[in-house]
Amino acid sequence: MSILTTIADRRSATIAAGASNALFARIVEDTGFECCYVTGAGIANMALGAPDIGLTSLDEVAQTVSRIAEAITLPLIVDADTGFGNAVNTWHTMKVLERAGASAIQLEDQEFPKRCGHFSGKTVIPAKDMVAKISAAVDARTKGTLVIARTDAIAVDGIDAALDRAHSYIEAGADMTFVEAPCDREQMLRIAALPVPQVANIVHGGKTPPLPQAELAEMGFGLVLYANAALQAAVRASSNVLTALREDGSLARVGDQLADFEERQRAVAKHKWDALEERFSQ
């Protein structure tokens, strides 16, 4: 049984903090989280300076996963969007991301190009096509990588249709399901009652009620994503600091918002590289 399976099976709403690059992933690990979510939206925002509208490629995601897997030891839940194509593409996606270091991949049933789960205007593929993708991902895995099946059907067809899809995805072999963007507590209770561990996605300013971890654990959710909390914090802090630098010509006003030099070196584990240098210089 994988570490991630053990975590999800506790149904204790374990928080999976999101990272869009290796630096954020190191901070996730250093602050004591048990797992890390490699966010597709974050990769699009950070690597492309673009919104989450299906612009990233499998190679870009795999490269990010590989770099994060090299930097930290936490199990990685990887946002694989729509599988980057049909069932055959999804089979290939599982192979590539598993090799890069994924402990789980998340697949969603939106039409391509997909968009952020909390954007309007989403559309979903037929459930049978998503079932084929899940079956392909299950067939392709060789290391026990979990398959998390996400449905965006609430926004399109309502909660009953979304739950029906979740049941069919579980029957197809999904280890967990993820019913995206419930709008109230009642919907969240119905989702948590599904027979496999569930994922809740808490987006600051998004559609889902930002219930505290204790309440989500009481409902029985397995994982809770805070996919882009670090990214949102960095955007706000960067804007504040750079605005002050432009206006004042110095950092005096915003020094308390900056990591000092030593903190920055700790964040990138400089001590590890110093130890390697010393080891190989003898």
Rank of each mutant, 00 (worst) to 15 (best):
C36M: 08
E70F: 12
H167W: 11
M219L: 12
Q282Y: 12
A155T: 10
L163M: 12
L258I: 15
D274N: 11
D164L: 09
E278S: 10
N86I: 13
Q63G: 11
A19K: 02
T151F: 10
I170S: 12
T39R: 01
R150G: 01
R264F: 07
L76P: 03
T64W: 09
P75C: 09
G173F: 00
V131T: 07
T6G: 09
I202A: 14
I125Y: 03
A62W: 05
F24I: 02
E215K: 05
G249A: 13
A229S: 14
L146Q: 06
D30F: 06
A237T: 13
S20A: 10
A229G: 05
V241E: 08
V268W: 01
A16Y: 05
I72L: 08
N201E: 04
Y169D: 03
G222N: 08
Q213R: 15
Q110I: 11
V224S: 00
E29N: 08
I170F: 03
A71H: 02
R190P: 04
A193V: 02
A193D: 14
G255K: 08
K133Y: 09
R67Q: 15
L97I: 10
K114V: 09
G54T: 04
R246Q: 10
E186W: 00
A161Y: 11
R115H: 06
L76C: 12
T64C: 14
V131I: 15
T5G: 02
P210G: 09
S57E: 04
V224F: 03
R10M: 08
S120D: 14
E180R: 00
P209C: 11
C116T: 13
Q106F: 03
E98F: 05
R266V: 11
A166H: 13
H118S: 06
A19Q: 02
T5I: 11
A227R: 02
N228Q: 10
R150K: 09
A192Y: 04
T243V: 04
T90L: 11
G249E: 09
E186R: 01
D81M: 12
T56F: 00
A71Y: 10
A100F: 06
L189I: 13
A149P: 08
I154T: 06
A137W: 01
